[in-house]
Nucleic acid binder design. Structure first.
Lengths: 211, 211
DNA sequence: ATTAGTTTTGAAAGGCTGTTCTATTTTTGT
DNA sequence: ACAAAAATAGAACAGCCTTTCAAAACTAAT
């Protein structure tokens, strides 16, 4: 039995526990779980909690009120893959890795990407750094953004660049922070059709590996 | 009534709640609090919890088991001040700011400092970055460390540098990551007497200000 | 259709928990 | 020394909570 084989109700139960713990900062009681999932019997909740424990998703502390602990870390934001200038963005649906970046940033669908290469090195974003992305359609001039190139038949490739709207040239410039690399210039007409802003970098996190 | 005027037992009670929540990931029950602080009566615990609520340190959810919430954020690590190459390190005893950097780093007495200036710019550590410091006496060659210069009558000034032990010259070199700045060279004999390593940088965190 | 396994209900037992009340002791300020 | 305020103990209550049990409903496979 693995965690994959969780019933629909068990998955909903687990999700509720995660959500409850995030908002309430304590685990829910069996009754609260039952109320949420419209389960009539507390024994029934107990039954599925035992299933979740057997499947390795939670651990239980017998006799203790709210005696539920999550096995996996669910704080922080998901690391959705890696990104490099020009190369496609790999996104995993169910990211196994999570990273804590402070509660203020845990809004909405904020996520993290691992930077590959030195394309943003002059902005002091290094290979291996985590960039925290806040999803949004629009951005200001000079923001570091994840820009997606929409291509027929493909899910689109993404790149990390600084965004500049050049009114005098009637185009958008996606500028890498590396003088060896060229900016991408997109005529205003093609923007919005072939490109869009996926999100904006709000923080950078670097772990120093042990020497 | 402010949080400053907390009795000794109330302070211990609050500290226990904080500690319990960190380790157990849920608030303690009144009885668990009483057991820890050797309070015989649950009514007595209730009394002091009300005091703590009145003093603005916690909030209580009536009738709910473990119905305690902390008002201040206590996750993450404390920001103990700021540091710049050559300039003294300001350390506040009771840091008001906290920063989340992931639970793996919340060990021991790990803390954060705010970097001032561009002395480590070539290592891509910028003005305003947070550096996460893990306290330790020793370090390896090439580690970025907080080095403290012990001075008579002063609490000592600290600086952020790369550490190199130069065996052939029989000295220690504290190297800034800025070619405009000179390294500090300390004869082996003076090291350990006038200098010590306070801790080592294990992570860097940068918040991108909104444009 | 039958059977085995799983899911759901209802009820009840017994321990835990927050709360309240009264009385007693200790501390504090005058 | 005295009075007021704060701290502590003990007991008791009602509601909450987990756990258990027996029985019923449902599902899937044969």
């Amino acid at each position: 039995m693995t965690s994959d084989q969780a019933t629909d109700i068990q998955r909903r139960m687990y999700n509720f526990i995660v959500h409850y713990m995030k908002t309430e900062r304590m685990p829910p009681t069996n009754r609260e779980i039952g109320r949420e999932l419209q389960i009539a019997s507390t024994g029934h909740v107990d039954y599925h909690l035992n299933m979740l424990e057997k499947k390795g998703l939670i651990s239980r502390q017998p006799k203790k009120s709210r005696g539920i602990k999550l096995i996996k870390t669910v704080t922080g934001i998901p690391v959705m893959g890696s990104i490099a200038a020009g190369q496609p963005l790999e996104i995993s649906r169910d990211p196994e890795q999570m990273i804590d970046v402070g509660r203020e940033m845990e809004h909405d669908n904020t996520y993290a990407l691992i930077v590959k290469g030195r394309s943003m090195i002059e902005d002091h974003i290094c290979d291996g750094d985590y960039v925290v992305i806040k999803p949004q359609d629009t951005c200001n001039n000079g923001d570091i953004v994840v820009a997606v190139h929409l291509q027929e038949g493909m899910s689109g490739s993404a790149t990390l660049k600084r965004f500049f709207q050049e009114k005098d040239h009637d185009r958008v410039r996606l500028q890498p922070a590396n003088s060896e690399l060229e900016p991408i210039l997109i005529p205003r007409s093609e923007w919005d059709e072939e490109w869009k802003v996926q999100g904006k970098v709000v923080a950078i996190f670097r772990q120093c590996r042990a020497a």
